[in-house]
Design a binder for these strands. Structure first.
Lengths: 251, 251
DNA sequence: CGCCGTATTGACAATCCTCAAGTAAGGTGG
DNA sequence: CCACCTTACTTGAGGATTGTCAATACGGCG
């Protein structure tokens, strides 16, 4: 019953009231930027959990910004193995690659129900010509994604299974925290162990064992889809700390 | 005896005669772009093999384009383990991350002697304001780096040791090929097995065994620093093919 | 109720790692 | 020109980590 719908009218959310703008740590638009964005936005997209938003190898005319919900980017091997490359959260841009090369190099799938803002790829040139600030933001977002991938690659390449799991959980928490999606020491994650395993580059069985080990040590505690965690201990295990950005842009 | 020198005068290479412009597949500058670049460039940097060009955690005022030579980006863990994130070749931009966030998230080291073009970070704003085409190129380069990292992450996370090695060798060959640095079925790579191991996320010993296995199968053949390879077989082993870009920019 | 996706656990096997030692090649200084 | 150092590469042996196969348990949903 999962479905994906794209609507041009009616829009649920006018740009002036974009929920992203209300998140602390997300930069406000300056000058003419908001006006430009209003024109750049061509619709909204709702995607149910489990649906594919962009497919590897496809050629998309669109570019999206996540308004709400969780998703993930992934790639497949012919033997069926899947690597989750990164997770996408509110404020993240999706599909930039497709706007720059002919084909998408990865797929994007919704983890929870999602709401996305739709932009027209073809108008990106206007953005670069008329809104250098937003163009810079686009580059900023791309560089930040690169930074996250660097971290993941370090993790998958050099950390032990336990360290990897600790890193990933802490990473997801910090990203959720920035968006006000956490309370105290716990938050809601719409992931299954299958997703974690595919992000960690570990088998499902071993991922399960590692998570249970962390649970028994009292470092994390799953209950349904809510996760409580000890950030300090996780940071020590993983040898990692989130870098705090002052202010981040979004489009 | 390794050293790193930055000179403002005399410049060895005027932008009009930039060797990158002569590489087939690298886009030429249009309109005012070349003039802008001439002003943007503030010097040249020579780095001997083995020297560090940018250090993780540092705050660089500069941005570089590789003119000649090989290098690599890497990150360290406190326990001393190192992950090579990607390799940099002529035409690649280095240090963009430092221009966007406060600190470099990774280090860059020269594999061979290198020549780099130096740009002033502080003038990047001018670029976005006055040269939308070049601004787009910057984003293009960032998105392409992201794409390569996606591939590496897939590789390290999901491929077997042998597949990984096959992928990496083929990847390096295709990148060198685009720059005319290959002849027939062989090319020069200034890498040691230590570098390969750290890029593959494998131990040195196991990397050595895997490479020897590939040699015995007749898929590759090292001799000194030149490597001959069977691209077809490597592609089959790795389940990967390079995507051919029509034209790529550089700054 | 029965099915399906998810989580869990055991047993065993394969991959990959560490330790260790030895060879080969290149550079330096006497 | 040779001894000697250092770096890179090789190979063996044994062990740890992680993977695969298999079976079970549990909960939500039609």
């Amino acid at each position: 019953m999962a479905s994906i719908r794209q609507s041009t009218l009616p829009r649920k959310i006018p740009c002036d009231e974009c929920p992203l703008g209300k998140i602390e740590g997300f930069r406000r638009f300056a000058g003419n930027e908001l006006e430009f964005i209003k024109g750049f936005k061509t619709g909204e997209l709702t995607a149910d959990a489990g649906t594919t938003i962009l497919a590897e190898g496809s050629h998309s005319e669109h570019l999206y910004t996540v308004i709400s919900g969780w998703g993930f980017r992934h790639k497949l091997l012919e033997n069926g193995r899947r690597q989750i490359l990164n997770f996408v959260l509110p404020g993240d841009l999706v599909g930039l690659q497709g706007s720059i090369s002919a084909e998408m190099g990865h797929s994007v799938e919704a983890l929870s129900d999602m709401l996305l803002c739709v932009f027209q790829r073809s108008r990106m040139w206007d953005l670069f010509r008329n809104e250098p600030g937003l163009a810079f933001d686009l580059t900023w977002l791309a560089a930040r994604e690169e930074r996250m991938l660097d971290e993941h690659l370090l993790s998958v390449g050099q950390r032990s299974a336990e360290q990897r799991a600790a890193y990933l959980i802490l990473f997801l928490y910090s990203r959720a925290e920035l968006r006000g999606m956490t309370n105290g020491r716990s938050f809601e994650i719409p992931l299954t162990q299958r997703h974690l395993a595919d992000a960690l580059g570990l088998s499902l069985v071993h991922t399960n064992r590692v998570l249970n080990r962390l649970s028994r040590r009292g470092v994390i505690k799953w209950q349904g889809h809510t996760l409580r965690l000890d950030r300090k201990k996780l940071g020590e295990i993983a040898d990692w700390a989130p870098d705090q950005e002052k202010e981040r842009p979004y489009i």
